[in-house]
Design a protein around this nucleic acid. Structure first.
Lengths: 211, 211
DNA sequence: GCGCATATTGAACAGGCGTTCAGGATACGC
DNA sequence: GCGTATCCTGAACGCCTGTTCAATATGCGC
């Protein structure tokens, strides 16, 4: 019969579709509001299949998060490498964090992840890895800038911590769309702080200068 | 009978006990893990009474949050007024945020609140009000410092935003107890940033200087 | 073509939990 | 003292939702 047409057609593709659906639903409803039925509906499959592939709702959530993590980072690393100097790279990171690639939706997801990480080990691992990668990238860019003579931080390790934390803090405002906080403002505030922290003198050749 | 001893004894006191119990449970289990039964148990009353007073679980949560908000702010404002100069007050805020008064537990609660604020209007209102109050206090201290000649920010409005955001960002690390992040480190990192932002010259008379 | 491992479905199950409710105790005005 | 409004309880109800399961389809090695 044509009714149950696609069975066992491309199981790997279905798995992936479910993971994508999972993060889509979490983005829309949050962790607390995500049901197996929602995921199945979004993925266009049955509830049973979600459990078949991932064992439980928690399993599906974990798988979705891990996928998101890798996907995001690969994309980021790829684009970062395309920029040519440390100043440009730093600028790129500022813009990426502020909203390029629909980060607003992502920041909301981040807030959810932080809260969940308080109790769920999987979430904690994902956010920790993500955070470490991001900070490592920041540190590399800064070291590179120091080597090239563009930056002169008084303490680069601390600057990394502060600049990364500032992004998270600004992101809270952005995600909760506090009046007055926009992606432009985010970039502007962060960039000025970076200038102050790192003693940047030469402006970024690519990308418009702040403001 | 002595069995059902305390009925209608002090309804207002029971209400308050329930609100306190509510935030205690949220602190321990998070919003997602908080059940009416937990609150009742913690408060030493019946499940029915929680609903009688607050109408629903959501109502109890909202009431608890509002109570927490006022309580925290009153306490803060009281202590802040006791400090004598702008530098001392700024220092006090740094230390309060970093962990005085068991803020670590509170920061965890904040993360939960942020995530919940994405969807729940009550939570959003509470966190917005809290945030506004905190930033207003920061701004007042900074203005005071400018007037007294202790601070010389290049743009005080922006400094307020950045310093407040930095606290939130550092708080994420602290709440998720990232290795290496402690209350001391929190204060140190934030204070250095404040020095940089505000051009503080004179050290705080009270409280040890950073590090 | 046959049989077996893998996918997939939809329905049924069962536990958890918010809410409702009928009933009682207490304080308080009269 | 009596009646009434308020406070409080514990049990029962019923829905929501994660998980289980038997049945079926599909692809694949032989």
């Amino acid at each position: 019969m044509a009714r149950a047409a696609l069975a066992a057609k491309a199981p790997e593709e279905r798995r992936e579709r479910i993971m994508l659906a999972t993060i889509a639903v979490v983005r829309e409803r949050g962790f607390a509001g995500t049901r197996v039925a929602d995921i199945a509906l979004e993925a266009g499959t049955s509830q049973g299949l979600v459990l078949y592939h991932f064992g439980s709702l928690a399993g599906a959530l974990a798988a979705g998060l891990t996928m998101l993590e890798d996907e995001f980072y690969d994309d980021f690393a790829h684009h970062l490498a395309a920029e040519d100097g440390p100043v440009e790279r730093l600028r790129f990171m500022a813009e990426l964090a502020a909203g390029r690639g629909a980060a607003v939706g992502n920041w909301a997801l981040w807030l959810e992840l932080w809260a969940r990480a308080l109790r769920d080990p999987d979430a904690r691992a994902v956010r920790e890895s993500q955070d470490r990668r991001w900070r490592a990238a920041l540190r590399r860019v800064i070291d590179e800038g120091v080597a090239a003579g563009s930056f002169s931080p008084s303490n680069s390790a601390k600057s990394v911590l502060r600049l990364a934390a500032l992004m998270d803090g600004l992101a809270v405002q952005l995600a909760l769309n506090e009046p007055g906080m926009t992606t432009r403002k985010f970039t502007e505030l962060w960039w000025e702080s970076a200038v102050l922290e790192l003693g940047i003198t030469e402006p970024a050749k690519r990308g418009k200068s702040p403001r």
